[in-house]
Design a protein around this nucleic acid. Structure first.
Length: 752
RNA sequence: UGGGGUAUCGCCAAGCGGUAAGGCACUAGUUUUUGGUACUGGUAUUCGGGGGUUCGAAUCCCUCUACCCCAUCCA
């Protein structure tokens, strides 16, 4: 299927290959304080999916560290969601509250190490002390407390000796850290609430940042996957595990972008508001993106899993088009469910020349769905068709019944309109029609060609049903608040008519109502007396059908002109260097600029120049490759000297190696610190410039790729790079690219 | 404003110095007793902008821009 791996799976594979872990263990760790939605499904799909793909395990862990918001009903909903999606968690459900004692022991250990303290600053003051994003904070005076005092205080906190807010336990890290999360984060706070599992045993509860990493560690989790907003928390995650010097292997945290879908909301807060203000009918309202809602709407687990796979996993904040979700349910249902006929807005048709009644055999599945099954359709002179399927004054391109255009009744006869009956307001109330006796479905000898076949039901045998038609919940693509709600998101049709077999035979719970869409027997409100169906999704509409052409998107808006911001001016010293570089050393201003502005770079550069005076060549490697290294590590950590770099450039200048190989040698050198010449010799990297060696290789590649040669000669110049690339690949990068280029050019321009 | 992230088609998303994958959406055609499905085509001379390095850059360097996250005793 998708042969490209996402960044998480790539990381897992890398770790497995490196032998970092014996087995992959992931976890899905929701806080049981709300109902799961399709965003949870994405996380479930990732965590359980990775475990499955790499023969690992995935835990389901309730992150229940805040007793005031959590409840067992959510635990059940969460478990249910995972199971419904078809996953099995490893062993029993885990709870962070299971680890309260262990976590407490770790906390005492941190205190003993002098890495944590009980702070007693009032909440407001603590906030002030934290500083701001631009200003460093300052540490509380309570950070001075002795280990013994801290231990004593924590014990008392645990035993409920204090009021909420009186004390907290904090990690002693760095009140001046540029990462706000690292300014002595809270580890424990006092809460006298009743915990739904731990009861009243604890008066202190661990904070996320303390509990999560350790819970992962205790469970042997290898890859702790969470959403982007925890990026800043990763540093604490690492700090806690590293500071406690836990026995390896330890877990590492990775973040992905949470799911957003247009025309709906995903945040707990907004979902809750909809339910509480009764703007929807509970958490399982089929318009909601909750698992319960989707499920009641009729979405299948497969369709949701497919959706999650389709949209992929990445780190860019994005909004997925609902059309993608709709596609996933349609394509899941299309080959599975029976087709039946239902009329939502009935228009009576009386077939004047038909007498009596009969039953027609009709397959549940169309010719392209390889499934068996059929039912009998009662037929008589009185039937109903969809009001939309008749037009007195048809628009151009209308395929269905008109005063002059016949239409086929699906599985039955072709009819034509003879008379239109209207009421006193001019509304059409009935069509008088006639049928063609020799046009019966399957044995049609009439020779009449119709443009369309429409659904219908027999008047006396049809069953009345309620149909709930759902549309997108919001009118806006990115809804802000309840003003953006779609007033027509739910339309209830009380008296729709459906063929009897659906009710009496009950061949399935999901159906395609022919030409309408996919529908699901509502699992809550459906009774034999009053059947209720939910519309899952409409059929895809052909373009000519579309009411509102989503106005052909204004093609290419004039490209926005980006205005460059101001560049911070150089200092005098930098300016002097810059002048020297361009004037004396003849460097390109751009290169000179980067060099002059970076002290480490320029000093490295100048030192290298002392061993070999090739100002331009050395400048290039310093500003490009060495600059890259310096982003990762300090200059003192470099394994090579300026002199070695000079040696490398010397080889390029003397055409012993190509610039391409130089990159390779550089990489090797930065890993091992070996002398460049030695690397070149031991690996045999000297470049090949001899045409007599190169030519046969080129010839072979040209013979192997006749179609590309063709395309190139037809004017596809991009392909030139392809040939160069192939030759270089064949020579393991050693071909002299300049020579290769000119040889290929010559060769390709010879017409055979 | 300090720090951490992200930017590739209308929407997702591969790509990791050598021919810009794929899906959705859109579009044209074929098949069709669903204006459905299926099938066959068409859709990025270009990767947020500008420079630089290189024989060759979406990929490396510099710089600018836009958006997201962080100052809960929430997770």
């Amino acid at each position: 299927m998708n042969k490209s791996k996402d960044f998480l799976r790539r990381k897992v594979e890398e770790d497995l290959k490196a032998g970092k872990y014996q087995e992959i263990i992931t976890r899905f760790p929701p806080e049981p304080n709300g109902f799961p939605h399709i965003g949870h499904a994405k996380s479930i799909s990732i965590n359980f999916g990775i475990a499955r793909d790499y023969q690992g395990r995935c835990n389901l862990r309730m992150d229940d560290t805040n007793p005031t918001t959590e409840d067992t009903q959510y635990v059940e909903a969460l478990k249910d969601a995972v199971q419904w999606l078809g996953f099995e968690w490893d062993k029993d459900v885990h709870y962070t509250s299971d680890y309260f004692f262990k976590l407490y022991a770790y906390a005492k250990e941190l205190i003993s190490m002098g890495k944590a303290y009980v702070d007693s600053l009032p909440e407001e003051q603590m906030r002030e002390y934290r500083g701001t994003v631009t200003q460093a904070g300052k540490r509380s005076k309570y950070a001075q407390r002795s280990v013994e005092e801290n231990l004593e205080l924590l014990e008392q906190m645990k035993n409920g000796k204090f009021q909420e807010g009186e004390h907290v336990l904090r990690a002693k890290i760095d009140m001046a850290s540029p990462n706000m999360k690292m300014r002595d984060p809270l580890l424990y706070r006092i809460k006298h609430s009743h915990h739904f599992r731990a009861g009243d045993e604890w008066s202190i509860y661990p904070m996320y940042d303390f509990a999560h990493c350790l819970s992962d560690y205790l469970e042997g989790v290898t890859h702790s996957i969470c959403t982007l907003e925890f990026e800043n928390n990763r540093e604490i995650y690492d700090w806690v595990l590293d500071t406690l010097k836990l026995e390896p292997p330890r877990p590492y945290q990775y973040e992905f972008a949470r799911l957003n879908i247009n025309y709906t909301v995903m945040s707990k807060r907004k979902l809750l508001e909809l339910v509480e203000k009764k703007l929807v009918n509970g958490w399982d309202d089929p318009r909601l993106p909750t698992i319960a809602g989707l499920r009641r709407r009729g979405y299948t687990p497969e369709s949701i899993l497919n959706f999650c796979e389709q949209i992929g996993v990445a780190k860019a904040n994005s909004v997925v088009d609902v059309a993608q979700l709709e596609f996933s349910i349609r394509s899941d249902l299309n080959p599975k469910v029976p087709r039946v006929m239902c009329v939502l807005d009935p228009l009576k048709v009386t077939i004047g020349n038909y007498d009596g009644k009969e039953e027609l055999e009709a397959s549940y599945y169309p010719h392209d769905v390889p499934k068996e099954g059929s039912r009998r359709l009662p037929f008589s002179k009185e039937i109903y068709i969809e009001r939309d399927d008749f037009m007195e004054n048809p628009t151009k391109g209308y395929f269905r019944l008109t005063p002059t255009q016949p239409v086929r009744l699906k599985h039955a006869y072709i009819i034509c309109c003879k008379e239109i009956i209207k009421d006193e307001h001019g509304n059409i109330v009935e069509i008088k029609a006639e049928y063609y006796p020799d046009s019966k479905s399957g044995e049609d000898t009439s020779g009449i060609k119709v443009k369309s076949a429409i659904q219908w039901v027999e008047a006396n045998e049809a069953k009345e049903i309620e149909v709930r038609l759902y549309d997108r919940l919001y009118i806006n693509e990115s809804p802000q608040n309840i003003d953006d709600l779609n007033p027509n998101s739910l339309k209830i049709v009380k008296n729709a008519l459906i063929e009897p077999a659906v009710i009496t035979q009950k061949p399935d719970v999901r159906f395609q109502f022919e030409r309408e869409g996919y529908f699901f027997a509502d699992p809550v409100d459906y009774t034999d007396k009053k059947p209720v169906f939910n519309k899952i999704v409409a059929l895809k509409e052909a373009s000519s059908q579309k009411k509102k052409t989503p106005q052909n998107r204004q093609k290419q808006e004039p490209k926005k002109v980006q205005i460059d911001g101001e560049v911070t001016p150089m200092t005098k010293e930098e300016e002097a260097k810059f002048e020297k570089y361009i004037n004396e050393l003849k460097l390109n201003p751009e290169v000179a600029n980067t060099l002059a502005r970076d002290k480490q770079l320029s000093s490295f550069y100048e030192e290298a120049l002392e061993s070999l005076f090739t100002p331009v060549g050395i400048a290039n490697i310093v500003t490009n490759d060495i600059a890259r290294e310096l982003k990762q590590k300090d200059i003192s950590a470099l394994k090579y000297t300026p002199k070695q770099v000079a040696k490398l450039i010397e080889m390029v200048d003397n055409e012993i190696i190509s610039t391409k190989i130089a990159k390779q040698v550089f990489e090797e050198m930065s890993k091992s610190g070996e002398e460049p010449r030695q690397i070149v010799d031991s690996k045999g990297l000297i470049q090949i410039s001899d045409p007599s060696v190169l030519l046969p290789i080129i010839e072979e590649i040209i013979v192997k790729n006749p179609d590309n040669v063709e395309k190139y000669r037809a004017g596809n110049n991009k392909l030139f790079g392809f040939f160069v690339g192939q030759v270089l690949k064949a020579t393991k990068g050693k071909g002299n690219p300049k020579v290769v280029n000119s040889l290929i050019e010559d060769r390709l321009n010879i017409i055979n």
